[in-house]
Each structure stands twice: as C-alpha cells, then as structure tokens.
C-alpha cells in the first residue's frame, strides 16, 4: 500500500492542530503557580506552595484533593474506576488530573494572567 500526497497533508494538518493546541494550552510557565479545581461549574484556585486538603463536591459525592509539598493529587473520589486517584501528583503548569464520572478537573496553572486564551478557537 502506498500513501498519497493528500494522506501526508491530512497527517500534517492533524499535527499542526495538535501543535496549535499545545502552544495555546501549555505556554507561559514562569509565573507563580496555582492549582485550579473545576467542578459543578465552579472554579476554586489555591496556591501550589501552601499545603491544604479540599473536599470538592461533584454529582457522585466529594472528591478529596490534597496539595502538599508543591504537588497536588486526588486522594479519594467516589467514582467507580478511581483513575483520578491513580494518576500521579501534578506540579508543573499544564499538568492535570481529571475525574470524569464526578466531573472534577484539577490542573496546575502558570499563575494568574497566564491563563489559556479562551478566544483561541
């Protein structure tokens, strides 16, 4: 089987879109970092360098997010598969942990003002 020019063009287009998303999502890593937790339509923002434990309400119950030693992780969640609990702790801007069933999204941001551009699509 031989690929044609348009196939490579399709793959190139795909790579370009991925590149554009990457740049807009992960740019800006110098500012002080904080942790954004999005759940139930609300966003909480906590500094990454202050240890704390938060219970975030979701449709299934409370997801427990712990910020400790400059890293954030999900300690417990009422979801069935516990993928978010098993995900490694996050510490760098752009890293994230998601609990899909409980609709909780935790991510490290590169500080305020360095947010993802909402108008980029």
């Amino acid at each position: 089987m031989k690929l044609k020019a348009l196939d490579f063009l399709a793959i190139l287009l795909s790579l370009l879109v991925i590149g554009a998303f990457s740049i807009s999502a992960y740019a800006g890593k110098d500012a002080p970092q904080d942790v954004a937790i999005e759940a139930s339509g609300v966003r909480w923002i906590y500094p990454l360098n202050v240890d704390r434990q938060e219970r975030v309400p979701g449709p299934l119950g409370d997801t427990v997010v712990i910020i400790k030693g400059g890293r954030a992780f999900v300690d417990d969640s009422p979801c069935p598969d516990k993928l978010c609990v098993h995900m490694p702790a996050i510490s760098r801007p752009g890293q994230w942990i998601a609990c899909l069933p409980n609709r909780v999204f935790v991510r490290v941001r590169g500080g305020s003002g360095q947010d993802v551009d909402e108008l980029s699509y």
């Binding site: 991925i18 807009s24 999005e38």
Partner: peptide, 11 residues
C-alpha cells in the same frame, strides 16, 4: 464539563 481546562486535554 471542564470549561477552559478542556484545552489541556486536547493535545
């Protein structure tokens, strides 16, 4: 679901 956090999952 995720608001602008969705962009981070995209790449």
């Amino acid at each position: 679901i995720f608001g602008e956090g969705a962009w981070l999952i995209a790449p």
